[in-house]
Amino acid sequence: MSTIFGIPTPALYGQILIGLINGSFYAMLSLGLAVIFGLLRVINFTHGAQYMLGAFAAYLLLTYAGISYWPSLVLAPLLVGAVAIVIERFMLRRLYGLDPLYGLLLTFGLALIFEGAFRHWFGAAGKPYAPPAQLTGALNLGFMFMPIYRGWVVAASLFVCLGTWLLIEKTRLGAYLRAATENATLVQAFGVNVPLLLTLTYGLGAALAALAGVLAAPIYQVSPLMGSNLIIVVFAVVVVGGMGSILGAIVTGYVLGVLEGLTKVFYPEASSIVIFVIMAIVLLVRPAGLFGREE
């Protein structure tokens, strides 16, 4: 068997793939956080809970309504997005113009409510969610066997990230969003319904988190706390990338996921903290983040 630095290559490729999958989730979640923060000036702590809600929505739709993976991929984000819209309309909206810390605290409280309630109802243990029949099995890539579902997750997340980026960079709605991120009052003074834009943006960001949750359901088990530890890592990713750039958030997510995977190969003890260590180093060298602007 061939080796690199004494590591068998299949193990190395396997960990890189796992890193790429984790990176897919970091990228999708930090993208949503960055879009929401850019426009609403709110750090959405509920993002992890919304990811969990997406996974649970898929699980519940399957268990109680017999609705399979593919429709859930659309339905779960819609449901979670709708809940998010209610949250924005009745709660977040009242905090605009105040210190952004209040938005963080509000969404932290909401995350506790969602996670606590789901743990109360469903217990802390994870629930298995089978991948759809079309995506089971593995593919022989020549240098390694890749489970098809994992390949699908990486491809789907790239597609989602690219789609979101195009939506923001190339469409009229995206132009409103970019402009309002710079100067919301002026955009509203041009006749754009900015309050509605804020609501939609928060709904879209939450739906993106929920979509990531559905994608994650067959890989990690569906559990009430699946989002809370992840969101803290994603915060670190966001600090590393800086929130000024959409593309920066995406790239940082994938790169850090792969670095984390590589750490698992070469120094497994540090794999759970490597992203935080990188964050600390970036703070020392480039406090504004790799793609950030000094605010």
Binding site: A175, R178, T181, N183, V192
Partner: peptide, 17 residues
């Protein structure tokens, strides 16, 4: 003036509905 840095000239021009 309120020209948006993240928009091109053409996008700035067509921004107001």
């Amino acid at each position: 003036r309120g020209i948006f840095a993240s928009l091109t000239v053409a996008e700035n021009l067509t921004l107001p509905p």
